[in-house]
Amino acid sequence: MNNINSSDVIVFVCAGLLIILLLFGFILFFIISYRHKQKDFNLLQTQKQKIDEQKVALETTLKELKETQDQLIQNEKMASLGELTAGIAHEIQNPLNFVNNFSDINIELADELALAIQKPINERNVQDEESIINIFKENEDKINHHGKRAAAIVKSMLQHSRNNTGTKEPTSINALCDEYSRLSYHGLRAKDKTFNATLETSFDPSIGLININAQDIGRVLLNLLTNAFYATNEKKKTVGENYLPTVKISTKNLENKIEIRVEDNGTGIPETIKNKIFQPFFTTKPTGQGTGLGLSLSFDLIKAQGGQLHLQSKEGMGTTFIIILPS
């Protein structure tokens, strides 16, 4: 032991000190890294919480967006009903005028007949009396016909505003096309007095009843027709006097399918936007005039019936929309 010299002691002490220092360093490193980890963990925790909150917020927004979309679609339906109102008023007014007029006449005829049959037998004119009775009956038929016409218009109006029940019923496509072309024509006429267009119809009589959701197809027809009239109206503003705005609606019986064409000689659709027009919210109308949902909704409604909606258009020449429905 006496061999241990002082330099050795210094070495040992130094080594011991180094070890202690290292140990201390390790401990310090661990403490610091633990603190870091703790901090990271806390950070992660707060981040996770934030993400959770954002997720909830996003879900709420998505739900709100879906609700807004539903609301917009419903608004679109109601807006198109609003556009119809003037047309409906006109279409109901006409048959009601006939009902009122023919029933007035029948009151007069009944009075006339009452007077006639009170005459002494030798003064009575049976032929005249029979003629009055015949006219009376004819008028009654007219009253009946026009009353039913008005009722049918009210019925289709109610169907239009009602929420989609998804029921398919055997429907006369030709009658539906005729009804909606009249409604949209008179709607536009009533709204813009300066406007006039020729409405041509050509219905294939061999089309019988087709099993479809009439109110949905009606909605599509209304949309396509309103667009068609709008396109001719726009063209008239630029072309002027010599232009004859014409909208044509026609039906055709194809094998296992039926085709409805809505044709106009209006402004046409430029190539560049042809692939956009069925997208929701796409519109070329000035702000506030179109929702951009009409054609997108139409496309979906036709698809839901197992049909197709096609477009043919040439800028400046006109547009044709073709509906294909399974029969």
Binding site: F98, N101, F102, I105, I135, E138, N139, K142, H146
Partner: peptide, 9 residues
Amino acid sequence: DVKTLFEQR
């Protein structure tokens, strides 16, 4: 039907 109506009126 305007025809019928006028003829009757």
